[in-house]
Each structure stands twice: as structure tokens, then as C-alpha cells.
Write a protein that binds this DNA or RNA. Structure first.
Lengths: 326, 326
DNA sequence: ATATCCTATGGTAGCGCTACCATTCACGGC
DNA sequence: GCCGTGAATGGTAGCGCTACCATAGGATAT
């Protein structure tokens, strides 16, 4: 940069200003600096800049997995909003493991990111302590925490699941099984399972533990769980899966076996994946604004960085999409 | 850090060493430093560290999109290998846009990442110039460049597509249509389309431009393209899609219409997506080691950082998986 | 007993940039 | 003619860490 400044006949600080905001220097100075930059092939050293300015213009985000495309829309929403404001998005995946999330957050804090977006509300004590102490703006996405430690944006996974059970009940199904993710692992699967149970109990239906399967979100697992459920209890007339990945897997399994859906068994999912509407019958599911969650999360972080107080909480809601499958 | 050093009764440089490599200081010193760190809640300032050490232990990577899960496996492979060596992975998506890729690469160079992994071999001149000048190790993934500017790991998309056409020809199909991504945009779709044409011409079959559709990789687009193809030319007996996303969309469209596959039309894809094997009939496709591409790419970068010469090129091959669809 | 080596630790300088304040100069109001 | 005002630019210090070399002291070799 000193070299560029010399060539342009100005002080280094003027080069710094010209690169940070072109409107800050006069037209002629800017032109000669631009020329000097082009001649030397100079590239700003963002690390040194961050050290001096105490701001990195980076936002860190943790998603459970990248392979499930439902989080991709949220990332897209985040990155679109941040990009406009000149912020960069650091993406990392926790593999649904709070300890991995903790290690990622530690790295983010070491990197001095200006804000952090977390998926869900399940975090280790150390994560909470670090973030509180570091005073970094945080937004939790995809579920609404009962005790937020900063901002949050998402919807009630509990209500969504209960709404789906109500729908199944209203369609006359009385023996509704459930395929969920491993409950203990995170708040969203947990909330969905609680919603399922609440929906059954308010309809006066019994909750049979034998009608519940828990399995990671993979297409095949949906198929396996469904066949297992029906093998154990042939009176099951509907299956509600906590994720469209599982529901689609189950639906494809039925089609392969030649079983009519919902004739043999009704199927419902939760996520609103695009593929659900292409399958015949279309998958009954619950849709929510995945991209919007990311976009709003980004905005909340920017507001916090801009000085707004913590504690904002936004419920973006959800919508039941009735297909032919249930 | 000065504060931690004072509490532990050592010099700051000793704290630095203890945090960088615990084996570097004696047990008692390490213990008192650990205690001081815990007491003060000190978090290493990685930005300052990077400035002083001229190394960030960060690798940047550009993928076209996050929403298509086929890249997720590659990212997973990258991140697993890098994590073990203490490197962090910065992920960004170009949306299949070379200019966006360029902006991302500029940011990576400003951040002084230690290496960069790019998807494909289509890059702007400026990207090549910047990376060459900066001397940053680079690996290109997913396709094998004719003129690599550093390392590469992937497979021949051209051969893969040609292999699929040969397969279709061997099954007796003679009027083979093609659904690809927009050709001009990137090397992989381009190579696949060339492979399709080469396969036809070596079988002595004519290439009808009317039997080619180009469209972004979305499920619905596969359905739309298929219906469009058949509407224009009912003699088409097989359709080869350059991506499983398109092929699955087309297949689901046939199932919705009640058309037998391959009775009405044979379908083949390319990617080896998990969902292809769950659908009935199973999708004939081409599988390649997606995760392995990422893992090897990471290793090549680490080797380059460790001083190995540029120019390594690895062909990881592919495998035709014959399902019932073609 | 001296030279040699190895381990554990310290001192200093500087990585490349930007915040902060100072300075310069042109302009217009009174 | 003097002073305030504002726009453009410069000087200096320092962000928090690690590379580099130096040092001290014990173990080992001859």
C-alpha cells in the first residue's frame, strides 16, 4: 500500500480511504490511485485492515448439514442481504452435534466475526457463555427459543407439527404414527415430536410409543421406518414424518410396493420441499419461509451491529399445504 | 494475552506458544497458563495472529450452488480432511456466475486464505491473473482442465456423458434426446453436451438440435423439458438428462402421466443422486466419488501448502449404474 | 573440566492497515 | 481583512500477535 501511495503521489492513508469508500477522495486522486493499484497488482490486506479497524465485516453461521437442501434457502437469504451491505458469510456445519457447534463458535469468536447466526436453540453452556462474554450479536433461526440469549427468527415447530396432526384428525385418520429425527439431539425435532403428541392428546387419541420411530433425515430411513411401523401395527392409517425427506422416502416406498396412498396409508411431511409437489400423490406438508428466515436473520444482525438492542424475536409462521397424500 | 501472561507469571510469547502447541512448553507452565486463560476468559485473536504469522489456516472454496446437494458431499470431504489439519473452510456460492466467482475469489485473496478450491474450470481471466500473481495454491474440482493453472481432481464429464449414450445405444434406443444445463455457462455442462454429441455420432446417429433442451437444474425444469421434447417429436425413445435433478423431474412427470418408463420413453441421468435409486423404476445414472473429490482436493492443497510442486491432476473416474429406467 | 547440545523461556521488532487528530487551502459572510 | 466552515489530505500511533534471535541452565560427551 505504501508502494501504491508513492506511485500515486499521495499518503498511504489516502489510498486506504480511496479503497474503503471512493467518494471519500477527489476524482483526480482516485484516478491516480486506481492506476497505481492496477500497475502494481496491489490487493488490500483485509487481515491487517480488520486488526486496525476492529471489525471484520464477516458473519458466521452454523447449519446442521449442507446435504439437506432445506437449509440452503436460509443460507441464500442470509447471504443476499449481507452481500448488499458488504458483509461476508462464513458457513460451517455442525452435523447436529452441539460440541461441533461449540468448536465452530470458538473459531468464529477467535476470528472476531461481527455477528453469528445459529440454527436452532440447542447450544452448549460454553457457547452461551462465550457469546455473552464476547458481546457478539447473535440470532437464532428456525425455532423460537423460550429463553433467547439475543435475537431470534423462525416459527413454532411445535405448532406446525400439532397443526398437521389436527389436519390428519380432521381427515378422519385415527391411528397416526410418527417418524421423527432423534429427539434428544435438537430443539426442532423435539418440538415437532411434542407437537405430534399434543395434537393426538387434544383429539383424545392415545399416544403409542410403538407408533413412533426416530431416525436421521435420509430418504432411505423414511422407507425403512414406514415398513417397520406397518409390520408392527397394521392398524396404522396415517404416518406423519417430521421432515419431507423422510416422508418422501416413505412415499416412494409405498409406490414401489404398489400401495395406494392414502388408500393403504396416508402420509404427511413437514418442510415444504419442492420435490413433494412433483410426486404423485403430492405430499401433504407444512411450508414455511425458509429464505425469509435467513434474510430477516441477516437484517436483525445488521441492526444489532448498528446498535439496536438485543431481544428481537420474529415469528414468520407456516402454512399447511394439503396434497393428495393425506 | 499480556494479561494472561502476567497472571501465569510468564512472557506473552510463552502464552502464544502454549496455545499454538501445548507440547511446546513444560507441564507446569502449561497448567498455569491454562488456569489464567480460564480465569480471564481470554480468547486468542486469530486476526492478529494471522497478520503476524502470514498464514490464516483458512481454505476458500467456491461451489455453484448450495441448494443442489450433490456439492454438499464434496464440501463434506473437503472439510473433513482440512479439519484434521486445523484448517478452516470458507464456503461461498457463485450461482453459476463467473463474475460472482471472481468477486468471491477477490475476497478470498484479500483475506489471504492459504488455498482455494474451485468447482470446475471456467474462470474469468482476472481470476486466473489474481491467483497466479498471489501465488495461492489452487485446486480445480469436478472436471479435468485441458490447461490447469495448478492442481485438479475430478473426472471426465465428457467421457461420462458419452458412456451413457453408448449404454442407451446398446439397449437399442435410436432417437436419444438430451436435457442439459445452459451450455455456455460452464465447462461441466459443456463437456456433458459434447459427450452426448460424440456418443451419437460414433454410433452413426444424427444429432438433431430439436432434440436438445437446455435449462437450469431444477426438478420442475426436467418435467417441462421432457413434455416439450415429446410434444415436438414423438419418435423420441430415450432422454438423457445431464443431471439427476432433471432426470428425476422428468421421471416423476412420466409417473404422474401414467406413462411406463422405459415403455413410453427411457430415461437416464448423471450424478448418482440417492433419490434415483428410491424411485420406481430406479434411475439409470452415472455415479462418481463426490466426497472423495473433496477429500483429495483438500489433500492436494495441503501438499501444495507444504511445498509440493503444482500441476498434480487426478482422475477419480465414474461408474455407470443401470437402473430400470433405461 | 570444558565444550557441546538441547530444552524452556524471554525481548524486540514488525506484520499492514486504519482511527484519531492535525493541517492546509479555498470560499464566503460580515 | 478576518474568521468560520468544510473539503481534501497527511502524520502518528497502535491494533494483538508471532518470527527471529538471544539467553539461561541442565544433561551429555570427551
Amino acid at each position: 500500500m505504501v508502494d501504491v501511495a508513492r506511485r500515486a503521489g499521495v499518503a498511504p492513508i489516502t489510498v486506504s480511504r480511496a479503497l474503503a469508500d471512493p467518494a471519500w477522495v477527489s476524482g483526480s486522486t482516485l484516478a491516480s490511485i486506481r492506476r497505481a493499484v492496477a500497475e502494481t497488482g496491489y490487493v488490500r490486506h483485509a487481515v491487517a485492515g480488520s486488526l486496525a479497524s476492529k471489525t471484520t465485516r464477516c458473519i458466521g453461521t452454523v447449519v446442521p448439514v449442507l446435504s439437506n437442501s432445506i437449509f440452503a434457502d436460509t443460507l441464500q437469504g442470509l447471504s443476499e442481504v449481507l452481500e448488499v451491505k458488504g458483509y461476508r458469510l462464513l458457513i460451517a456445519s455442525s452435523q447436529y452435534n452441539p460440541l461441533r457447534e461449540q468448536r465452530i463458535v470458538e473459531a468464529f469468536v477467535e476470528q472476531r466475526v461481527d455477528g453469528i447466526a445459529l440454527t436452532g436453540t440447542t447450544h452448549t453452556e460454553r457457547v452461551r457463555a462465550m457469546l455473552t462474554r464476547a458481546g457478539i450479536p447473535v440470532v437464532e433461526m428456525w425455532n423460537l427459543p423460550t429463553h433467547p440469549f439475543d435475537c431470534a427468527v423462525g416459527f413454532s415447530n411445535f405448532s406446525a407439527a400439532r397443526t398437521m396432526v389436527r389436519h390428519l384428525v380432521s381427515r378422519g385418520y385415527g391411528r397416526i404414527a410418527y417418524i421423527g429425527g432423534p429427539t434428544y439431539k435438537n430443539d426442532r425435532t423435539q418440538a415437532r415430536e411434542r407437537g405430534y403428541r399434543a395434537g393426538l392428546s387434544e383429539a383424545g387419541l392415545p399416544t403409542a410409543e410403538a407408533c413412533i420411530r426416530r431416525t436421521p433425515f435420509e430418504f432411505e430411513n423414511g422407507a425403512v421406518a414406514l415398513s417397520d411401523l406397518l409390520a408392527h401395527d397394521s392398524s396404522i392409517d396415517a404416518v406423519f414424518a417430521a421432515s419431507d425427506v423422510l416422508a418422501v422416502g416413505a412415499l416412494l416406498y409405498c409406490l414401489r410396493r404398489g400401495w395406494p396412498v392414502p388408500g393403504k396409508v396416508a402420509l404427511a411431511g413437514l418442510d415444504g420441499s419442492p420435490i413433494g409437489t412433483l410426486i404423485t400423490p403430492e405430499l401433504t406438508s407444512i411450508r414455511f419461509p425458509r429464505r425469509q428466515i435467513g434474510a430477516r436473520a441477516a437484517q436483525l444482525l445488521l441492526d444489532r451491529i448498528g446498535g439496536r438492542a438485543a431481544g428481537a424475536m420474529e415469528d414468520l409462521g407456516f402454512e399447511l399445504v394439503a396434497g393428495g397424500s393425506a
